[in-house]
Amino acid sequence: MRIGKYFVFIFFAAALNVSAKMKDECGAFFIKNGVMAAFPIKKNRDKWIWYKKERPEYAWIAETGFYENGVFKGNGFGFIASIGSANLKNTPMQQGTLQELIDFSGKNAFLTKDSTFHNVESLNDLMMYSSQISAKVIVGEFIMLGTQNPEAVRMAKLKKPTHMKLQAILPESIESYMCYPEIESIN
């Protein structure tokens, strides 16, 4: 658990540094032994509701790769925080702060079809079930999503990606977006 506490400290120190220079912009960052994505909050509210018996629910998805001439090509790695249920009819509605929604969300890394390792089941399982993804609302302006899981970070940095594709999916379509920030290195 010591590594987890160290990551949280680095994660939030970098996140606060990042939020000071960004306003309503997506951000992508490689930190020492880690990778982070900053999702701007388009509309903050006191109460967030999930399992509302409608789709979509909530997802914040980051993929590493390359963006050129308006086209994104992933390097095969992504990470996500999401809320959803295959059985909305029998799942009770919940409500709370955005941080409570983020804490409640499922978080994991994954390999996309762009990965040369996509068909290696053991590596897919390692990404999906063993990688530790952290998420935190920063100053009510951003959702920071990141990991310092060594295997996930190695996969994120494979082929030296230059950009991330960030996609926020929310029930209110006006709050959903996709952006392609250039990856910045923060040490």
Rank of each mutant, 00 (worst) to 15 (best):
V137Q: 02
K136D: 11
F79T: 03
I80A: 09
F77P: 05
G146H: 07
F29M: 03
K43D: 14
N119P: 00
S134D: 12
K42V: 14
L101E: 06
G70R: 00
I80H: 09
L101K: 03
G140H: 05
P56C: 12
S130E: 15
E68F: 07
G106D: 12
V120E: 09
G96P: 04
E54H: 12
W60H: 04
L126S: 08
Q99K: 03
S82R: 11
A37I: 04
S85K: 08
S82K: 10
S122R: 09
Q95Y: 09
W48H: 13
E25K: 15
F142P: 01
Q132L: 14
P40L: 07
M93C: 07
A109H: 04
S134C: 11
M36F: 02
M93S: 09
L123Y: 07
R154G: 03
N33K: 09
A86C: 11
A59R: 11
E121T: 11
I49Y: 15
Y67G: 00
L145R: 01
F110Q: 11
N90G: 13
Y67W: 00
N33S: 07
L123T: 03
T147A: 05
M36I: 06
G78F: 01
R45L: 13
G140E: 05
V71Y: 06
N90D: 15
Y129P: 04
S115Y: 06
A86V: 11
K21P: 04
L98W: 10
Q94E: 15
L126C: 07
G74D: 04
L111V: 09
A109D: 05
D24M: 10
A59M: 13
K113E: 08
G106Q: 12
E57Q: 14
M22D: 10
T112Y: 06
K23T: 13
S82Y: 11
N149H: 11
Y67R: 00
F142N: 01
I83Y: 06
G140I: 05
P150R: 02
K42G: 08
N90P: 05
F142C: 00
G65Y: 06
